[in-house]
Design a protein around this nucleic acid. Sequence first.
DNA 1: AAAGGACTCAACCGCATAGGC
DNA 2: CGCCTATGCGGTTGAGTCCTT
Length: 324
Amino acid sequence: MGRAPCCDKANVKKGPWSPEEDAKLKDYMENHGTGGNWIALPQKAGLKRCGKSCRLRWLNYLRPNLKHGEFSEDEDRIICSLFTSIGSRWSIIAAHLPGRTDNDIKNYWNTKLKKKLLELAPFAHLKRPHHAAIYPATANSFLQNSSLQRQTSAYHSTNKNYYTTTPARVFTGGYESMSNIPSNLLEYATSFTTCSSNSSTPTVFQVQEGQGAGPAQNYQFKENYDSFLIFGNEASSSSSDGSGIDEDFGLLSYFGSGVNENQKLTFPANGYADDSKATNGCFPENPLDNSIEEIKQLISANNVCNNLNYSGEEIKTEEQVLYY
DNA sequence: AAAGGACTCAACCGCATAGGC
DNA sequence: CGCCTATGCGGTTGAGTCCTT
């Protein structure tokens, strides 16, 4: 048996709200408020609507002090920074943008901001926005528990268009360490190679499929993504021998052009808008990335989301991770 | 000018959670 | 403590609009 419906669907109007309905709801809300019960509100207000629909209409459209129209550069930065830290927690992000609703921000991100970021990414000329995905703050989850070391990758000796160096370390974290990448995107654990050895530049990961030995090295994109872009800041991790994780992951990015005849996911090395700015194949910092630490602190100080760890990542149980 | 594809965004849906009993 | 219901949330849908050919 399924869940009981929240209202009598047969006697409830759906679809766009008319100005008359808006006026009724607004009038009722201004005079009575919700009365602590959205379900009973439509009847009291003389509306043939579901309580949930009334709530949504009020919160997203009718309530006072809502901001409509273009998002500012500052708002863009805040959204990017928070998305970096906490992912698609739209309601939390909305709490940092007075006058904006979670729905607004979600739509803005999905239709405009994500595209904007992808255009800033390297190889933008190769990207097809609708076949790309952006995921947040995976630096920690990828690297915190791995033994990945710095490695400067080299151009392939015969084909200068591709990096084909083998991974310095095989990353075998599996889903548990990649919890921010939905399992519908990834099929197996991955192997990585980094091409950055410079803490002032972001790091590019090359992902290879089916290389080397070991059961956890197979990697596949699922669904129709040609690429994904990961961005986030990363606390440093280093040791005396110079190994460790670069500081300042302004932007982590990966571009996969598909599986070639060697079953490798590769990316062109000459795809930078301005090659002179690339160091060892790494591209300039993401201009939208800023003050993430401050925002993390703010979140932590305000206890906005108390199931996030110090870096804004959700603390999940093993079960949650496996099915996330 | 028309047709079809792409994009936008308001609204819906179903699940998770909180809180009352 | 367990059940039940209202609320909140994020993902998804689809009608309307805009853009391209």
